[in-house]
Design a protein around this nucleic acid. Sequence first.
DNA 1: ACCTGAACACCGTTCAAGT
DNA 2: ACCTGAACACCGTTCAAGT
Lengths: 182, 182
Amino acid sequence: MRSLAQRLTVTATALCWHVRTKDDVLDLAMDQIFGDVPIPGATDDWPEDVRVLVRGWRSAMLRHPWAPGLVGRPMLGPNVLARTEFLQAALVRGGCRGRHLAAATRTLANYVIGASLTEATWRRSVDPDARAAARDHVAAHADAYPTLNASGHLDDDRWDDDLLFEDGLDGVLRSVARHPPS
Amino acid sequence: MRSLAQRLTVTATALCWHVRTKDDVLDLAMDQIFGDVPIPGATDDWPEDVRVLVRGWRSAMLRHPWAPGLVGRPMLGPNVLARTEFLQAALVRGGCRGRHLAAATRTLANYVIGASLTEATWRRSVDPDARAAARDHVAAHADAYPTLNASGHLDDDRWDDDLLFEDGLDGVLRSVARHPPS
DNA sequence: ACCTGAACACCGTTCAAGT
DNA sequence: ACCTGAACACCGTTCAAGT
């Protein structure tokens, strides 16, 4: 609050007059981030529409390093709702209805939220020491972590983040498309 | 820190002597939560093994109301690693290797993290006023939100959370199983 | 090694007072 | 209506001092 007010060249007390509480500022910041998630035009290729939206969603989250600290709060702003509307409309175009539609919407949102949060956390706040310590722990107890060792799960440059995100997104979309409500 | 120290009937300064910083306490708390995510025995039915683990993961998150505030931090504790090892081992049993394995592991983790975070946030910190305000906003602009209105996306009692989580999990598992690395 | 008490620099928010 | 300055209660962390 104090430093934000300073950036606006006012006092913190002036800021408190415009917003009710700090949480309101964070909610507004969150919705502002969603504001620059591009909403593509609806095409005949609904899975591609979903892909474009979800890629933009993830990109916007990763663009703001402090975004992970905002995810534990309600997302009910108009910008969030507009993106959700587009996402769900694309799924309806894909034949989803009722319970399948609700599940598919949540699954896609969960996927992109989880991915953005994990990636942003990883590339920001994990210092090399802690990372190396975890890798040593896994390597030292090879009997307890045979799979993680074999797959190189903690070697962060093993696979490209963008690539894995795209793979997972394809999988999720496939599972949605394969289960139309008849 | 101060209130935690009080619960331990010591001063805050005493607590600061045992841990380096507050973040360390939060990291330990996070790993502690994962400690009571049950690790099932490995069976022949690997998708069911994944389901049991992931259900327990979500349950543990929802059991601790302050868990959402901890997700924006690295998860590298031994308890987290042990659950990740089990998850990835089950996927290997399902035939996943290499890049597919990495993508599948992340997809499942992203799904359960996103779902737990969203649900916990929703049922904890969203006051009825804000919820009603968002619902009114969507209803008032029916032209902008045709799909959300038709699907009742903001009516939280429209579908059961457990049901939708299970549906989405089935979908994700199906997409993993359908894409074995040949 | 382990704990205390006092202190430091900071935080979000409020309240009277100004214009 | 909009802003200020002072103050309040709090916070994580440190530092000298104790045992």
